[in-house]
Design a protein around this nucleic acid. Structure first.
Lengths: 166, 166
DNA sequence: GTCGCGAGGTTCAAACTTGAACAATTTGTC
DNA sequence: GACAAATTGTTCAAGTTTGAACCTCGCGAC
């Protein structure tokens, strides 16, 4: 026999090329987004993401456990970051009236102003690096591929925002 | 006028959906790869990446500065990780005879064995989450999109391995 | 040659993340 | 109702990353 049957199936040359490209994007894109936001707004991408998720809800409020899902972070990491953001006055924590174990994070006016100030530069960076690098068809193909991947990464769609209709 | 001319151009609904999908992939995929490698091989994805890049060269050797480019890491981060990997006997550092400022990292037999042991599980995960989630055309579209994005992220292609022919 | 600037690496302190342990609820089951 | 199990969130110690400071060496201009 030429190969044991429990070999992992290696990648073909084409698959390997595609994967190695993806790894480079996966490592460089977040670093670049972080650098821009840190430089222009004093926020990490993760902090921006947290504030941004809050700003999308109608009452600017989310339970910490939900916020952890939406940002794909551990509760421990989120707890630390929320504490820092609270110390900066960008949000505040309040007990959840419906469940006394839980806390809710509420965006403050200062926090909303911070996201709104940071957003234009961030959007410009996203355009420069991704959206404007692709034509409409290519961006749509990228969306489809990401949807397929997300079905594997997150079958329950727990990380998908509720307001995300599509 | 309805909008000042220096507004950043906001994303259209379609573009926004595509971008939000990408952000979810960008944050969850590396975390998942990390978890699998840490669990099954005791390596972070970054450590695996370092060892893997070394294993791809003919003499299993790379200058640290080159290795930093290939893994998109700061020299500082790489220096720390290389020190740890050296302490574990997975690689060793030696002075570069051609440039006395430089050091080279050389994969040891133990290091090669570690990559070879970790590789099958890693490849299986990559297949499960990405490669097998897409058909050939979709994977090719993904490759093309990533190539366009990399032209923006890394115009000089400094992070592209030399043996990467394509 | 030698002067100055830039490249290659290391180190240290400060900041951040992780994972385990913990306390306080809530939920489900009998 | 009462008890076990699961959920929510915080905290602490250990490990990792970051950025600035620093040292050594190569390169180019003069």
């Amino acid at each position: 026999m030429t190969s044991a049957s429990n070999d992992p199936r290696w990648l073909t040359a084409e698959q390997r090329v595609a994967w190695l490209h993806m790894v480079r994007v996966l490592t460089r894109l977040p670093a670049t987004l972080d650098a821009q936001l840190e430089r222009d707004a004093g926020l990490s991408f993760f902090e921006y993401h947290v504030l941004s998720m809050l700003s999308e809800t109608s009452d600017h409020t989310l339970r910490l456990s939900r916020l952890a899902q939406l940002t794909s972070s551990s509760l421990s990491r989120l707890s630390n970051v929320v504490k820092r953001l609270e110390a900066q006055g960008l949000l505040r924590r309040e007990p959840d009236p419906d469940d006394r174990r839980a806390s809710r994070a509420v965006l403050t006016g200062l926090g909303l102003a911070a996201v709104e100030q940071a957003a234009p530069g961030h959007v410009t960076t996203v355009r420069d690096l991704v959206v404007d690098a692709l034509d409409d068809a290519q961006l749509d193909h990228l969306r489809v591929a990401h949807e397929r991947i997300l079905e594997r990464l997150d079958p329950s769609s727990a990380t998908r925002p509720d307001w995300f209709d599509n």
